Lab assay of single mutants.
Amino acid sequence: SLEEAIRRAEEALRKGQTFEYAGIRVTTQEALEKFRKWAEKQK
C-alpha cells in the first residue's frame, strides 16, 4: 500500500538509505515530502 511505502521511505531516510518506489527515489526529507504529496494524489 502507499501508506506502507511512505513508512518504508521514512525508515530508509532515518537510516540514511535510499528508498525507491514506482521509479521515484527518496533520498532527502524534501524528496520524502514530494513523495507524500504524490502518494496523496494516487488515492
Rank of each mutant, 00 (worst) to 15 (best):
R7M: 12
A5D: 03
K34F: 13
Y21A: 02
K15P: 01
R7K: 13
A9T: 01
E40K: 07
G16L: 03
A31T: 12
E30K: 08
T27A: 14
A5K: 05
K43A: 13
V26G: 00
E33F: 04
K34R: 14
Q17G: 12
I24T: 04
K43N: 11
R25K: 14
R25T: 15
K43E: 11
W38Q: 03
T28C: 09
E33Q: 08
I6S: 03
A31E: 15
S1I: 12
A31I: 06
I6P: 01
R8Q: 14
K34S: 11
G23N: 07
I6Y: 07
I6W: 04
R36N: 03
R14S: 14
L32V: 02
Q42I: 14
A12E: 03
I24F: 14
K15G: 08
L13Y: 04
G16N: 08
L2N: 02
S1R: 13
T28S: 13
I6H: 01
K34V: 12
E3S: 12
E40P: 01
E4A: 12
E4I: 10
E11F: 00
A5V: 14
R8S: 10
F35A: 01
K37S: 10
I6T: 04
K34P: 00
A22P: 03
T28Y: 02
A31N: 09
T28N: 13
W38S: 02
E20Q: 06
F35P: 00
E3G: 09
A9N: 01
T27P: 05
A9V: 04
Q17C: 12
A12R: 04
L2V: 07
F35Q: 00
R8W: 09
K15I: 11
E10Q: 07
R36G: 02
R36W: 05
A5N: 04
F19W: 04
A31P: 00
Y21P: 02
Q29R: 09
E10L: 05
G16S: 04
R36D: 01
R25M: 15
A9S: 02
G16P: 00
Q29M: 14
A31S: 14
A5S: 06
Q29I: 13
R25H: 13
K37H: 11
W38K: 02
G23Y: 03
K34Y: 15
L13M: 07
Q17T: 11
E11S: 07
L32R: 00
R14H: 09
A12T: 06
I6E: 02
W38T: 02
K41I: 12
A12M: 09
E10S: 06
E4T: 10
I6N: 01
Q29Y: 13
Q17S: 10
Q17V: 11
E10I: 08
R8L: 13
E33I: 08
W38N: 02
G23V: 01
I24H: 12
R14Y: 07
K34E: 15
Y21F: 10
F19T: 01
E30W: 05
K34H: 13
R14K: 13
L32Q: 00
S1F: 13
A39N: 02
S1K: 11
K41F: 10
T28A: 04
E10T: 10
E4W: 09
F19I: 02
Q42P: 04
R36P: 01
Q29P: 12
E3P: 07
E10V: 10
E4C: 15
R36K: 15
E30Y: 04
K34N: 13
E4R: 11
A22Y: 08
A39G: 04
E3T: 11
L2I: 12
A5I: 15
E3K: 10
I6V: 15
E11A: 09
W38L: 06
E20G: 01
K37C: 09
L13T: 03
G16E: 04
E10D: 06
L13K: 01
L2Q: 02
Q42M: 14
K37D: 14
K15Q: 13
T28R: 01
G23S: 06
F19S: 01
I24S: 02
K37E: 15
T28G: 06
R36L: 15
R7V: 09
Q29N: 08
V26R: 00
E30I: 07
Q42S: 08
E20N: 05
I24W: 15
F35G: 00
A9I: 06
K37R: 13
G16M: 04
R14L: 11
A12K: 05
F19D: 02
T28I: 03
A39K: 02
E4F: 04
K43Q: 14
E11P: 00
G23E: 05
G23R: 02
E30V: 08
I6R: 01
E40Q: 08
